[in-house]
């Protein structure tokens, strides 16, 4: 355990009730991630990887335990404050990209910036820079249906980094891509990790885990290796 952990979870538990049965996808989990680390969380389906990511992002609430990110007790924030906190601190990458189909690549990437006090010119500059960073400057006016899966995921990554958040959470970002596209996405994540962002990547693909600084394995809601 380190005092300067960027992410700090203690006794983190998430329990659902399905009839009389209690299900714990996350069970008494402790985790420390220093700032700037690229952490890969691996585990089989149902091991609690995505639930942990949702708890870190504050889109789900723990039944017990504590999540601190950058010194903020995320589990104690109201829904409204959580959204404001995410808008400044978190970029989220989904397995199925989840772009808004009726918006162009540019407009999708611009979405997080609509909440920020930025002028139209500033927003444009940031969106163009983000799309440039993912190699899609020439696809700005394309709608998601006009892009390949790999390109859609790159747009989603641009959307996740456009507001320059210190934390990137990626939920199986290569899970729906062919090998070549997956490699390109992993290279991109690795280059983003080198720029000082803290990245938590959830995956069950060992190749994806290779790009991380550290790999932890989850099973039945518990970490199989001791936190670093």
């Amino acid at each position: 355990m380190t005092l300067d952990s960027f992410i700090r979870c203690r006794g983190l538990t998430r329990e659902y009730r399905r009839g009389p049965e209690a299900i714990r996808p996350i069970d008494q989990l402790d985790l420390d991630v220093p700032a700037g680390e690229f952490l890969a969380l691996m585990g089989p389906s149902g091991s609690g990887k995505s639930t942990l990511l949702h708890l870190l992002a504050g889109v789900d609430r723990p039944t017990a335990g504590r999540v601190e990110i950058g010194g903020v007790a995320v589990n104690e924030l109201s829904r409204h404050r959580l959204a404001a906190w995410r808008a400044r601190n978190v970029g989220f990458i989904f397995q199925l990209y989840h772009l808004v189909p009726s918006l162009t690549a540019f407009e999708n990437v611009e979405l997080p910036l609509l909440l920020a006090p930025l002028s139209r010119r500033e927003r444009r500059a940031r969106v163009e820079a983000a799309l440039e960073a993912v190699g899609l400057s020439d696809r700005m006016r394309h709608f998601p249906r006009e892009l390949s899966g790999g390109q859609e995921q790159r747009v989603a990554i641009a959307r996740a980094i456009v507001h320059d958040p210190p934390l990137l959470l990626a939920d199986e970002p290569t899970g729906d891509l062919d090998r070549r596209s997956a490699t390109a996405i992993l290279d991109l994540l690795r280059s983003l990790g080198r720029r000082g962002r803290t990245i938590v990547l959830v995956t069950h693909d060992p190749r994806a885990a290779e790009v991380a600084d550290r790999v932890l394995h989850l099973d039945k809601g518990r970490l199989l290796e001791a936190p670093a």
Partner: peptide, 16 residues
């Protein structure tokens, strides 16, 4: 429904 959940994940408050 999914689109709104994604927007909230991106930081859109529920009121928005």
């Amino acid at each position: 429904t999914l689109e709104y959940a994604v927007l909230e994940t991106l930081g859109y408050p529920a009121g928005a």
